Lab assay of single mutants.
Amino acid sequence: DETGKFLVLALYDYQEKSPREVTAKKGDILTLLNSTNKDWWKVEVNGRQGFVPAAYVKFL
């Protein structure tokens, strides 16, 4: 159920650099879980949760 969740689009490829991050490919649609940090947003992609740089994604 996606009610109340926001989707964001990956603008660039991002390769995770730590276990707390997730890899995303340009064009991926990610479920935004938390955007309270202006630099790192928590997302879910391909069943995995983790952080990506906020500058790499935008709201749909």
Rank of each mutant, 00 (worst) to 15 (best):
D1M: 13
D1S: 14
D1H: 13
E2G: 14
T3F: 13
G4Q: 13
G4P: 14
G4T: 12
G4V: 14
K5Y: 13
F6R: 15
F6Y: 12
F6H: 12
L7A: 04
L7I: 08
L7K: 10
L7Q: 10
V8D: 00
V8G: 05
L9G: 01
A10S: 04
A10W: 08
L11V: 09
L11I: 12
L11G: 02
L11W: 08
Y14A: 02
Q15D: 14
Q15W: 13
Q15G: 07
Q15I: 15
S18N: 11
S18Y: 06
S18V: 04
V22N: 02
V22L: 10
V22P: 03
V22E: 02
T23G: 06
A24I: 15
A24W: 09
K26I: 08
K26Q: 10
G27R: 03
G27I: 04
D28S: 06
I29Y: 05
I29S: 02
I29L: 08
I29H: 03
I29T: 05
I29N: 01
L30G: 03
T31I: 15
T31G: 04
L32W: 04
L33Y: 02
L33E: 01
N34V: 10
N34Q: 09
T36R: 10
T36K: 11
T36F: 11
T36W: 09
N37Y: 07
N37V: 05
K38C: 13
K38T: 09
D39N: 12
D39F: 15
W40Q: 00
W41A: 02
W41P: 00
W41F: 09
K42L: 15
K42E: 14
V43M: 01
V43I: 06
V43F: 03
V43C: 10
V43Y: 01
E44F: 04
V45E: 00
N46G: 10
N46R: 10
G47I: 06
R48P: 04
R48E: 05
R48Q: 07
Q49V: 15
Q49W: 07
Q49I: 15
F51E: 02
V52I: 15
P53R: 05
P53I: 14
A54Q: 03
A55Q: 11
V57L: 15
K58H: 09
F59E: 09
L60T: 06
L60C: 12
L60M: 12
